[in-house]
């Protein structure tokens, strides 16, 4: 067969292509910057440090969950159970403290274990039973949405609630609530957690051999196996990371709510998937990446907060997020330079 010679680096690239490539690389960041400037001019209260922290706090939990989704996507998977995982962990932590009167640290441990349990079911289905990722995690999503209802008999969990005529003995500990509402040097704790996890995910995906192996599996599982990568184990690892991130998100959400609300985790699936997918278009990565995911989450946060300040009603938020997602999908799938098919 004949081989085609692709243009080599240093060859003359038409100006238009180069402009498109620059636009693609920095487009999303530019739009983000423009948005911040415009909102700040329109509403001076927007451009303050305090508001920046508020925006970051509003997106912190989504970003944390999205980082996990990013890791599963890197390995060519897709974790649809992330939102249900968040909801399940909220219920587990709330029940641990309120109904079983356990300490804050125990509740955190229980929450993390719950997240790993969800991941375990995913791994069992995907790696052992060979069910395709999308439908397997869809099944897990239903399973744990249901389980969250069962363990709380379908009610919300809050201090002083009664189950079967017995008043719950415990309440949210102050240490646990601090995770949601506390600050360190005026920075909210969830924002700090987000920053730490983002840095960890960035290093893990971009600079460790495990991250490289995950991307390899996402790119060509057959070639990865023949290069000696144990594909099953790495896919298990990816879902475990995803489950743990969702659990951390669930713990932060539980702490912020101060109670276990039924269905609290539901919005987090779509929002975190959107953040991860928007992240594809950041700096021309064109693949799931930690930095992009955080930028994606912040992008959504800035947009919604700005529009809210401009008196856009809250019920437009979902549509705005959808439009953002669609726009960035077109950006990474259609407008990517060198991706013409």
């Amino acid at each position: 067969m004949t081989t085609t010679v692709k243009p080599q680096v240093g060859e003359q690239v038409p100006l238009l292509d180069r402009a498109a490539s620059i636009g693609y690389r920095y487009g999303l960041l530019a739009v983000l910057a423009v948005m911040v400037v415009v909102f700040s001019l329109a509403r001076p209260a927007f451009g303050t440090f305090g508001n920046a922290l508020i925006v970051l706090q509003s997106v912190a939990i989504v970003a944390v969950v999205a980082l996990g989704v990013t890791v599963s996507m890197a390995a060519g998977g897709f974790d649809l159970s992330a939102g249900a995982n968040v909801g399940f962990v909220v219920m587990v932590t709330a029940s641990a403290m309120v109904r079983f009167n356990l300490t804050g640290p125990t509740a955190i441990a229980a929450g993390l274990l719950a997240g790993l349990l969800v991941a375990g079911v995913n791994v069992l289905l995907i790696v052992v039973a060979k069910v395709p990722d999308l439908v397997a995690t869809l099944g897990t999503m239903f399973l744990f949405q249901g389980l969250a209802l069962i363990i709380t008999s379908g009610q919300s969990v809050s201090a002083g609630m009664t189950t079967d005529g017995v008043t719950a003995p415990g309440k949210y500990t102050s240490g646990f609530v601090w995770l949601g509402a506390g600050t360190v040097a005026s920075v909210p704790v969830p924002v700090i957690v987000m920053a730490l996890l983002a840095a960890a995910a960035y290093v893990f995906l971009g600079h460790t051999r495990w991250g490289r192996a995950l991307y390899a599996i996402g790119g060509n599982p057959r070639a990865s196996r023949l290069a000696g990568i144990r594909v099953g184990r790495y896919r298990a690892l990816a879902y475990a990371v995803s489950g743990l991130c969702a659990a951390v998100g669930g713990i932060l959400l539980s702490a912020r709510l101060g109670r276990g609300d039924v269905g609290a985790g539901d919005p987090y699936l779509l929002q975190s998937v959107a953040a991860a997918l928007i992240g594809f278009a950041v700096l021309g990565a064109n693949k799931p990446n930690a930095l992009g995911t955080v930028v994606g989450a912040v992008f959504v946060g800035v947009m919604i907060s700005g529009l809210t300040m401009l008196n856009a009603p809250y019920y437009t938020q979902t549509f705005v997020q959808g439009a953002l997602l669609v726009g960035s999908l077109v950006m990474s799938y259609t407008l990517t330079p060198g991706r013409r098919r």
Binding site: T208, R209, A216, N220, R222, A223, S224, L226, A227, N286
Partner: peptide, 29 residues
């Protein structure tokens, strides 16, 4: 194409893929 190369990956990443451990220290590449 089906069994060895990864679309979009650099020559460097192809070279080191089978021996990532030898190119990293405590996991860091």
């Amino acid at each position: 194409a089906a069994q060895a190369t990864l679309p979009g990956w650099s020559v460097r990443a192809h070279v080191t893929l089978p021996r990532l451990r030898a190119h990293s220290r405590t996991g860091l590449l």
